[in-house]
Amino acid sequence: MITLILDLAHYARSKTQQPFYIIPQNGEQILAFDNGELLNAISGWAAEDLFYDATHRWSSEDSAWIAEHRFPPLDRVLDHQKPILSVDYVDDGSGYTGANRQRIDDYRKRAQYREYIPYVARSDRELDELNIIPGVQP
């Protein structure tokens, strides 16, 4: 998989003199197999479901697994001055109010605390719309 991503990066970047960004998503544990080439080649990393399983907080067991297996490699990327794009599907579509607002704010707070860039997506996971929440995300 590392070779695949490096191939994509090399091919795309050989076609332009402009910066060409490569952002893998999820599977960040692959960095355990990296000799540094992948970390150097990527421009950032995206990660889904770091804090919530749709509209529910992960169980304590799952949270512990994420803390042990997902945060460390993502923080390695961050340490290399490359952004982490976090997306959690926490918005149930009921509007920025009540429990939905609390959940959205909580997710964003947790992501930003880790210096990740949050995106609040709809909980149906369709990704078929730009989820604009005035005052929260453009």
Binding site: S14, Y21, Q81, L127, N131
Partner: peptide
């Protein structure tokens, strides 16, 4: 020299695959 990777400097992002 390897092609430049470029530094990605963003504050917000969004994700829309369909429609």
């Amino acid at each position: 020299e390897p092609p430049p990777t470029g530094k990605l400097e963003i504050r917000t992002w969004a994700y829309q695959l369909q429609d």
